[in-house]
């Protein structure tokens, strides 16, 4: 059977379009999503198929349209909000953090918020600090939301479709640097369940755990380390909330080593959470403490070389692995 190869951005669009055909309550709104075909062409052609009542161009007004979508979700619609960048979500902090994830709780179960908020997350495009946010560190702190970070085109489709069908609010973090990535994506209905990590590369010496784009940095590092005779098992966590700690623990109990790679800052982050949980579950199995590789603890720089050094790149990961394994 021949594989169907499409881009990451096409996979995202396919998930949205299929769910919109299935469910009239689903609609997409955001800046430039309709007539402009999306700032990154994720929603290309959707206006033609679904019309302006369901593919809705908004003004630059994140707090307003995010709040509008949350209100609509309270009444049972299933909005998809596109933030051109998660960096812009900061001006919508109150609706997305105070309303969406807390509505079910504060109303004692009366009003849920089945919304998907999606957009570009992370540095890598030389955009400087204000446009390069990795929000997973800040936002994953909040109970009531789910957080999904796909690293491959098939997951982009399957996880976004799952997000749209989910009854809870989902923060869906995409990397602009991955949108042109090509891969096999199943046609038709395709759903990837949340809370199920996947082993991207089996190995025996150390477990690398990551989410989103840095999964690729881990795979690059693993390739390089294999030449040195070091065998890395690379786990793609896929979702941060829920976190599939079981798959991670199973791997660490086998390898007896763990390096967590997270593109958000180190202080109070998914990386620190995973490290803490691994320490708790695998205390007697670890040959060394869990090592962590994050974006450098500084604002994201503009200069190309500084930005590359800032990211949790393959070189820094390889260094951490050697250190974890006491390889000089």
């Amino acid at each position: 059977m021949s594989e169907r190869i499409i881009e990451f951005r096409d996979a995202l669009r396919e998930a949205m379009s299929q769910e919109m055909r299935r469910d009239p309550r689903v609609f997409l709104l955001g800046e430039e999503v309709a007539e402009y075909d999306g700032a990154y062409k994720v929603s290309r052609g959707m206006l033609e198929e679904f019309g302006p009542r369901r593919i809705i161009d908004t003004p630059i007004s994140e707090s307003g349209f995010a709040g509008l979508a949350i209100g609509a979700a309270m009444l049972g619609l299933r909005p998809i909000v596109e933030f051109m960048s998660w960096s812009f979500s900061l001006v919508a902090a109150d609706p997305i953090l105070n309303n969406a994830p807390k509505m079910l709780y504060m109303s004692g179960g009366q009003f849920g918020c089945p919304i998907v908020i999606r957009g570009n997350d992370g540095a890598g495009g030389q955009l400087g600090s204000t446009h390069s946010w990795c929000v997973e560190g800040m936002f994953s702190n909040v109970p009531g939301l789910k957080m999904a970070i796909p690293a491959f085109p098939d997951d982009a489709k399957g996880m976004l479709a799952t997000a749209i069908r989910d009854d809870d609010p989902v923060f869906f973090l995409e990397s602009e640097r991955l949108l042109a990535m090509k891969g096999h994506v199943p046609e038709g209905d395709y759903y990837v369940p949340f809370g199920k990590a996947v082993v991207r590369r089996p190995g025996t010496d150390v477990t690398l755990v990551s989410f989103g784009r840095p999964v690729h940095f881990c795979l690059d590092a693993a390739e390089e380390l294999a030449k040195e005779g070091i065998s890395c098992e690379v786990i793609d966590g896929r979702t941060i909330r829920p976190l599939d700690i079981d798959t991670i623990v199973k791997s660490v109990k086998k390898t007896n080593g763990c390096v967590v790679v997270d593109q958000s800052w180190s202080f109070g982050s998914p990386g620190s959470e995973v490290a803490a949980q691994v320490h708790a579950h695998c205390f007697d199995d670890l040959d060394n403490h869990v090592m962590r590789v994050h974006s450098a603890d500084v604002p994201s720089p503009y200069a190309a070389n500084l930005e590359q050094e800032y990211l949790p790149n393959a070189r820094r990961i390889a260094e951490a692995v050697r250190s974890a394994l006491y390889v000089a």
Partner: peptide, 29 residues
């Protein structure tokens, strides 16, 4: 009744969304 909201002004985009949803249900669905 959709709340009861504690942050000053927070209910104004939400209320706009409620009205949007009612109109969407009436007209689009």
């Amino acid at each position: 009744l959709f709340g009861g909201h504690g942050i000053v002004g927070a209910q104004t985009p939400l209320g706009t969304g409620l009205a949007f949803a009612k109109k969407y249900q009436d007209e689009v669905i």
